Computed example of a mutant assay.
Amino acid sequence: MKRDDADRFFVVTGGPGSGKSTLLAALAAEGLVTMPEAGRAIIREQVAIGGAALPWADRALFAELMLAADMRTYREAQSLSGPVLFDRGVPDVVGYLQLSGLPVPPHVTVAAETFGYARQVFIAPPWPEIFTGDSERKQAPAEAEATYRAMVEVYTGLGYDLLTLPRSPVAERVRFVRAGIGASGVGP
């Protein structure tokens, strides 16, 4: 695993609908640097242009676009200082392909091993009480659970330590993440 900026790059991962994006928005509002999830942006762009790189159309192409976006976001983060929190990381693409029953191409494995993050990865467990679908999140709760399990397998397989986010109000999750990254004094 490449470690140049990894110690200050933190991933928040897990299944859809588990509060990751809400948590990251709250952390950003407190002054922490966050990087967005690639998947939702790709879905919006592909729908707008009538593209096929969608999880319900061409999953392999969707994965390739996510990989490209995640690598670009990683490189952008290298120009920033201090801790950076990512809404999913490059290894999530491996988990997505496995979950989709698709082969993981060698270049995706190399990317997951090369674009390293801090050893501690925050993982949001399934949380059926807050799960909602929308035009971009078409998964059912069972698929959210399977995604969570896939991310546990991928990240632990790559040597990361998982810190399970509590199923608690956003403010408590923010405190948990701040403590986990040692950034309790960061921000306003």
Rank of each mutant, 00 (worst) to 15 (best):
P105R: 05
P16Q: 07
S184G: 13
P188D: 07
A142V: 04
G116P: 03
A179M: 06
G50K: 08
L24M: 11
A63E: 01
Y148L: 08
A25S: 13
S100E: 13
F62D: 10
A28N: 08
R119K: 14
G19Q: 06
E30A: 10
P128C: 05
E153T: 14
A68M: 02
L54R: 09
L102H: 04
A53N: 08
V108N: 01
G50H: 11
A57P: 00
D92R: 12
G187S: 00
T34V: 15
S184N: 12
S135H: 07
V110Q: 13
V108D: 02
A179R: 14
E45I: 03
V174K: 03
L67Y: 04
A68Y: 02
G116F: 09
V154L: 04
P91H: 06
G39A: 15
P103I: 02
Y148P: 04
M151K: 13
V11Q: 06
M66P: 01
Q120D: 14
Q120K: 13
P169F: 03
G31T: 03
P141Y: 02
G14N: 12
V90Y: 02
R119I: 00
P91E: 02
A183Q: 12
R175K: 09
L23E: 09
V11D: 06
I42G: 08
R167M: 03
G51F: 02
R8P: 04
D92L: 02
I130T: 01
A53C: 10
R137N: 13
T109C: 05
A38W: 06
Q46Y: 11
V110S: 13
V11T: 12
Y74V: 00
P166M: 12
G51S: 07
A53I: 10
L32I: 01
V152I: 15
D58T: 11
M151N: 15
P91I: 03
T114A: 09
S21E: 12
E113W: 03
P188G: 14
V186S: 12
E30P: 04
W127S: 08
V84W: 00
M151V: 05
V110F: 04
A29Q: 13
G82K: 10
A77R: 04
P83V: 12
P125R: 14
S168H: 07
Y117R: 02
R173L: 07
S21P: 02
A26D: 10
A77K: 00
A6H: 03
V47F: 09
E45D: 15
A112R: 05
I49A: 12
P106C: 05
G51H: 05
Y117S: 00
